[in-house]
Write a protein that binds this DNA or RNA. Sequence first.
DNA 1: TGGCACAGGTATATCGTTTAACCTGATGTC
DNA 2: GACATCAGGTTAAACGATATACCTGTGCCA
Lengths: 344, 344
Amino acid sequence: MVSRKPTITDVAALAGVSVAAVSKVVNGKGSISAATRDRVLTAASKLRWTPSAAAVALRSAKTRAIGMVAKRSPDLLSADPHFTLLISGIEDELSPLGYGLLLHIVGEEPTAEEAAYRRLADERRVDGVVLTESRIGDTRFELLRALDLTAVLVGTPWRDDPVPSVQATGPADGIRAAVEHLVGHGHRHIAYVSGPEDRVHTLHRRRVFEDALAAHGLTPSHSLVSDFTAAGAAHAIGTLLTGHRRPTAVLFANDSMAVAGMSAARRLGVDVPGELSVIGHDDLPLGELVHPRLTTVRQDLVGLGRAAARVLLAALGEVEGTPTDIRPPELVVRESTAPAPGRT
Amino acid sequence: MVSRKPTITDVAALAGVSVAAVSKVVNGKGSISAATRDRVLTAASKLRWTPSAAAVALRSAKTRAIGMVAKRSPDLLSADPHFTLLISGIEDELSPLGYGLLLHIVGEEPTAEEAAYRRLADERRVDGVVLTESRIGDTRFELLRALDLTAVLVGTPWRDDPVPSVQATGPADGIRAAVEHLVGHGHRHIAYVSGPEDRVHTLHRRRVFEDALAAHGLTPSHSLVSDFTAAGAAHAIGTLLTGHRRPTAVLFANDSMAVAGMSAARRLGVDVPGELSVIGHDDLPLGELVHPRLTTVRQDLVGLGRAAARVLLAALGEVEGTPTDIRPPELVVRESTAPAPGRT
DNA sequence: TGGCACAGGTATATCGTTTAACCTGATGTC
DNA sequence: GACATCAGGTTAAACGATATACCTGTGCCA
């Protein structure tokens, strides 16, 4: 026989006080003597009572949940654990506060993403959302403003926007270090393979790359745009290695592409890192699994998620103070880079 | 000036009916004439009204959300997109029905997982949960029963249990095919590297492996237990390749370990697949990224997630009928397997 | 000694739905 | 013609919390 779930009324009765008193105790509002507080608290724990999320949400218009919608096909999503790490970080901050994370995965259909945000807002299921993958011409800011949903962006907004955002300190350091590393090893022909051009970071990173090269009087040997897929990376490697002015090193916009690129190179009979140095981006576990182990730009994705959550919670008035700082990107040198051919 | 969100009362007023009528229209209950239905519907869409999730949850004790708690460190979580694919499948079924997915990631601390389930139940945030990674001696079934939370398990329960579960049809086919493939290529010394022994599938798969081998009068050259980490896989390869009765082929319990194993072998100067054939499990995108491309046992994780969601929704009385069927595991032959050394 | 502030509560309206119970006019049945 | 039935609604009471307004006994000061 499963007994009905306890409500605040049961707790009040057991403690011999009014329901209002119980509410005040659990919310720390109003003034309650230590004695009754204790009685209430022991009564609550004796009954294993916790306020019903629905009732709280209805009365106080706060759901204590935040939302996230990931716009990716299952394939891409699983090839790149980017989101997973971000979510881990977000959860780190959310769960101590009893906040929940409502996740939606929507695929690439154009209207699906907006519909997901709308539903979150219209049904009032969440207090705020975290946005990822800042896009150029991103319409989500206006949408969320119209929907009256608090938001925080992970990354750089495509233009000045009142939506708060978080990013690592010294965001350019990693790629700069990667270029220094390569140039220091005698590389002069260095290519860049970016992700889709609608991402804001695509442009940023490419610019950083070019600037760092320019500081040494160099220009990119190639600057290709790809799509985060294995096929895309393989294709990019094909054009790099078969064309003229063949590069001796290449930076990829993420680790999956870098790994796919390495095997594509090997398939073409090109040795990595002997004939071609390869650098990835993000430092996913994947990079340590493969041979040669991937040199890559580490990004503190978990920290990014944590910071985003904190900023959002602060905007919701739930916490105050400074977000934890995010470790700056740094170069992790492993085995996929070596001195340029013909140089020791 | 942002106007207050519309409520059912506003819709009723605009349509010129009572709120009860509106409720009946949107829930398809009671009897309402087509004419008033239309009036209500147009009024609702004119106001962009959607029922408040909190109010519905409070009144009807249904949250229209399901929960999932993942017990893994961020590292392991991101190394293996297992969860991600499952979640994609779950979402496929949930979102058309307007259900939400509440995700919690909890790390390895022993009490954290139970606490997460308790919170989900006590705060009544979800109607049900999906359980993954069936464990031996799993205590979650009792817990959830005590918490009165509907659940469905992805995988095989560790013992007969009233909790419904989903698994692929012909669950043993994949591993069996893998063994046939190897034996057919002349392999006689075949090793198995499993995941942690507390997983139910660990034992199952090992048994299938041994049985399939026995059908050819063979026994495993080795049967190692590992932990899903890259280091674990490398260590396993070390003992396999340096000990006596060195195997010519090895099956790993997941793709990440298989990939890590391949590079460990190469590091030891052992050619894959020339001297050692390697087979993974799950068919993650990762397997196509590396060189040689990984031969692996494909598992329909998205389908598994979809089926789990359907069974759960059926248990909640939300849908009826048969769960979509899950594609049986099958062997995907790529480049990491070859005839046994000394045989063409 | 009257008045007032304040600690420590209580009573009750309210959040936005669903739903059980009730109403009413039209139709069918004998 | 009387009565049951039914389609097509309406009314009002929950659901489980929070928060505003209100009450009551002390202590303190002028």
